[in-house]
């Protein structure tokens, strides 16, 4: 590990008062940024200075700061969650930057994710997609016996690859088309890979895709930027699974007749 150093940064950050106002990029100079800080800690330092100066701090989403909750995220120099692979913004460290760097920080850009304030966007569209079918209907009475349904390890691992999605919205932000297919597909693929999810497979994919389309996301044209930007590395295979589930539900199931 290299010793801690401090650096001076030029920050260009999207400021927007509320959903109804027009935002713009604002310039900030920040001195004494430690290389050991996380990206969000760097923003904390900037906000402390802004508050001391009587100015409005920069609004950004964050919660666990451990890379598992899916709350944080911004587009840093054009890259979703910054330059590191499979890393959320909170896990990105300032040692990835150099003294004197200019860093451009923007919110997720999507018709379906309107900016609420500064770097915070409204991601409730994801919740509505999830509620449209991203669940399994099970009795919640007494706890079921463990291992009543055997699942091959390969299937369990595959389902887990899809289940790693934390719903941060980075896939939408990274997609040149603003599509939400990787998110929706991760849910569809996770559930259909497991026996418990097979019961509702047809109705689920139809209603979830219908909801996704209604929210105003774009259409996937297979650039694969989403999977490359995904902090959890959800595989692009998920979208193929959703596509064939959708075709299967449309042409081979009685659902939606």
């Amino acid at each position: 590990m290299s010793a801690e150093k401090t650096m001076k940064l030029n920050l260009k950050i999207w400021r927007q008062k509320n959903a109804d106002s027009n935002g713009s990029i604002e310039d900030f100079q920040l001195d004494g940024v430690s290389t050991d800080m996380s990206f969000l800690e760097m923003l904390d330092v900037l906000n402390e200075q802004l508050i001391s100066a009587g100015r409005e701090p920069i609004a950004f989403d964050h919660d666990c700061r451990e890379g598992v909750c899916g709350c944080c995220g911004a587009v840093v120099n054009g890259q979703v969650h910054g330059p590191d692979e499979e890393t959320t913004l909170c896990q990105l460290h300032m040692r990835r930057f150099h003294d004197g760097d200019t860093i451009q920080i923007e919110p997720w850009r999507s018709r379906a994710f309107p900016v609420i304030k500064d770097l915070i966007v409204d991601r409730t569209a994801f919740e509505r997609i999830q509620q449209a079918g991203g669940f399994v209907s099970v009795s919640t009475g007494s706890a079921p016996d463990a291992n009543t349904i055997s699942i091959p390890t390969r299937d369990a691992e595959k389902a887990f690859d899809f289940a790693e999605c934390i719903g941060c919205g980075g896939c939408v932000a990274a997609c040149p088309n603003g599509a939400a297919m990787l998110f929706t597909a991760a849910k569809v693929a996770q559930l259909v890979t497991l026996p418990q999810g097979k019961l509702e497979r047809s109705s689920r994919v139809l209603t979830m895709v219908e909801r996704m389309d209604a929210e105003g996301f774009g259409d996937c044209t297979n650039h694969y930027e989403c999977s490359a930007a995904c902090p959890k590395g959800v595989p692009i295979e998920a979208i193929a699974v959703m596509n064939r589930e959708y075709l299967r539900a449309t042409f081979l199931s009685p659902e939606g007749a």
Partner: peptide, 9 residues
């Protein structure tokens, strides 16, 4: 139409 505001970078 899915991205009305473009990225600066």
């Amino acid at each position: 139409g899915a991205r009305p505001v473009k990225y600066a970078v």
